[in-house]
Design a binder for these strands. Structure first.
Length: 568
RNA sequence: UGCCGGGUGGUGUAAUGGUAACACUACUGAUUUUGGUUCAGUCAUUCAUGGUUCGAGUCCAUGCCCGGUAGCCA
């Protein structure tokens, strides 16, 4: 799968997170000694996976790998009104893309019959009853955080009556919301989850897998622990907001007398400069603030994939952020540094000019074209080299020229020399402007003794700066989508009254430009990733066609010059 | 106001009663035909107070602050 550091060489990671520490203790306890560790990733198929899910995926599958165990993929499909096959498919695709393969594929809906039988068992034991209270009444009877609840008037129905009613509920005799099956626990429990929680609700809805077979559906609490139990999950790892549900999880397993997994909770991921809740992501899509779930600005797995993130970079990120019980926000910079780290090692370099400024090498022969040899990846000799055409008329980046340059500007300015990457050293002699006073061309001369690759002292003489370029007649056009952070603020949810996170969207999170790129890119295929030298990492978007190249900026390179400039 | 869980640099994560470590960020400096990469270095007495101890980020007590929780959602 992947070379993670945890137990990577059969050895142990020097630092264990709290989940690993608990697991190691458990694995030596009498209950589990000699047993195989089994976890599961249990998404509800009601949306696309995002980077927060990636944390859970890496944790669950990673743990299984570390401890020589197994990890299942289980769809928690207990609420047919929100779930769709489309989501089931995308989730499987995303998990695989991240580099993981589940041992068993399950659906909570596969356990509906067993869950029903267990409910009957609880009714017979006098531990569950059919309640006729409406949802509003149920809420009133539950009490509040500080006031204990009171018993439902239906709490003491006979076992026989409960059995009949529950059977009729299943048979479809009652409309939505008419009755529920509830566990008989304690209406005065300080933990509200224990105040006779609902186990089944009536829902005449079509389920994406069971069709119209059922009209009663189990609640999360009634389905989750038992599903874990059926699959003999040893460790059921979930997020912190389920912490208060653990006593209920335990209660059901105990009352049923079935295999009892251990639930462990960790803090879910929050990322700065973006939003993570499904509701908000859905809103971005439906209100067209982005082009879809896979828009490169979205923190979804599909969005990150389209943006150019690699599975390795996301796994690396998950490894970096750790796992704890403290509710924290990870800086987007950590995600960005992860993808830079991986792409720096594997992405081939290429030259692309985003905002072209024509230059003419006046002493270079009109019809001459030389092929210059360029290294594809200085970090990886096996990536080889390629040939780039050099000619009299070139295009450079507008930002690489300044008429009145400050002292530390190491690029092109009148009278100064600069190295053209993999080309020659040139000097700018003259600036050509149009009637409006805009710079339209630079006239330069080159030093023929400085051809790249030659080993002579004159050829290797140093100049302060090196800039990228393309040959005007050879370059090809490409649409480049310059993506930036989705939101302007570190915490987009932090808004004044009356505003929403939408007011914090970064208006500059996408700029589209037409760039001139070197001819070698002609054959680039969707998904290919490159480093545009001195600029950033880019990938080929699926919108690319035979006659139109489209690139997405994954992330810019670190830019200490821009940083220097912004100081003043 | 009940119950549950948390507070370690700018941000995260470690340290399991014994030298507060690692990563990201930032800032120095070196290297560099990418102002990239790489390398070297700088940046904290652990929420507060008291206690136990030869020794406390870690154990105890009290306080303060933060988060979760009252769906027939998951």
């Amino acid at each position: 799968m992947h070379g993670d550091s945890l137990h990577g060489d059969g050895g142990k990671k020097d630092r264990l997170n709290f989940v690993e520490q608990e697991i190691e203790k458990d694995l030596q306890s009498p209950k589990l000694v000699g047993k195989t560790f089994i976890s599961r990733f249990p998404p509800e198929p009601n949306g696309y996976l995002h980077i927060g899910h990636a944390k859970s995926i890496c944790l669950n599958f990673g743990l299984a790998k570390s401890y020589g165990g197994r990890c299942n993929l289980r769809f928690d499909d207990t609420n047919p009104s929100k779930e769709e096959q489309e989501y089931v498919d995308s989730i499987q695709n995303d998990v695989r893309w991240l580099g993981f393969e589940w041992d068993e594929l399950h659906y909570a809906s596969d356990y509906f019959e067993q869950l029903y039988d267990w409910a009957v068992q609880l009714i017979k034991a006098g531990k569950a009853y059919v309640c006729d209270l409406t949802s509003e009444q149920t809420r009133e009877y539950r009490g509040t955080l500080t006031v204990p609840g009171k018993n439902s008037p239906f709490r003491d129905r006979s076992v026989e009556e409960n059995l009949t009613l529950f059977e009729e509920m299943r048979a479809g005799k009652y409309p939505n919301g008419a009755r529920t099956l509830r566990a008989k626990i304690d209406m005065a429990a300080p933990n509200v989850n224990l105040r006779d929680p609902v186990m089944y609700r009536i829902l005449h809805a079509h389920h994406h897998r069971t069709g119209d077979k059922w009209c009663i559906y189990p609640m999360y609490d009634w389905a989750h622990g038992q599903s874990d139990s059926i699959e003999t999950i040893t460790h059921s790892i979930c997020t912190l907001e389920f912490e208060d549900h653990r006593p209920l999880y335990d209660w059901f397993c105990n009352e049923l007398g079935i295999y009892h997994p251990r639930q462990i909770e960790f803090a879910r991921l929050n990322l700065s400069y973006t939003v993570m809740s499904k509701r908000k992501l859905l809103q971005l899509v439906t209100e067209k603030h982005v082009s879809g779930w896979d828009d490169p600005r979205m923190p979804t797995i599909s969005g990150l994939r389209r943006r150019g993130y690699t599975p390795e970079s996301i796994r690396l990120f998950c490894e970096k952020i750790g796992v704890a019980r403290f509710y924290s926000t990870i800086d987007m910079g950590v995600l960005e540094s992860s993808v830079r780290e991986h792409l720096n090692a594997v992405a081939n370099r290429v030259m692309a000019v985003m905002n072209p400024l024509p230059i003419t090498i006046t002493n270079y022969p009109e019809d001459q074209v030389e092929l210059m040899e360029a290294v594809n990846n200085p970090e990886d000799a096996s990536a080889g080299t390629r040939q780039i055409p050099f000619s009299r008329n070139l295009l450079i980046e507008r930002d690489d020229f300044m008429e009145n340059a400050p002292k530390k500007f190491f690029r092109l300015t009148v009278g100064a020399e600069v190295r053209l990457r993999y080309g020659y050293i040139i000097r700018c002699d003259e600036v050509v402007k149009n009637a409006a006073g805009e710079i339209v061309e630079l006239r330069c001369t080159y030093d023929p003794e400085t051809r790249s690759g030659a080993e002579t002292a004159t050829a290797t003489r140093k100049v302060k700066g090196t800039i990228h370029w393309v040959s005007a007649q050879h370059a090809i056009d490409a649409e480049v989508r310059l993506y930036d952070r989705l939101c302007m603020n570190e915490n987009p949810e932090d808004v004044p009254a009356g505003k929403t996170f939408l007011d914090n969207l970064n208006p500059d999170n996408l700029k589209v430009v037409t760039a001139k790129v070197e001819p070698a890119l002609k054959t680039a295929k969707a998904g290919d990733r490159f480093q545009f030298e001195r600029t950033g990492y880019f990938c080929v978007d699926p919108d690319t066609t035979a006659d139109k190249l489209v690139f997405n900026r994954t992330v810019s390179l670190k830019d200490s010059w821009a940083k220097e400039m912004s100081k003043t």
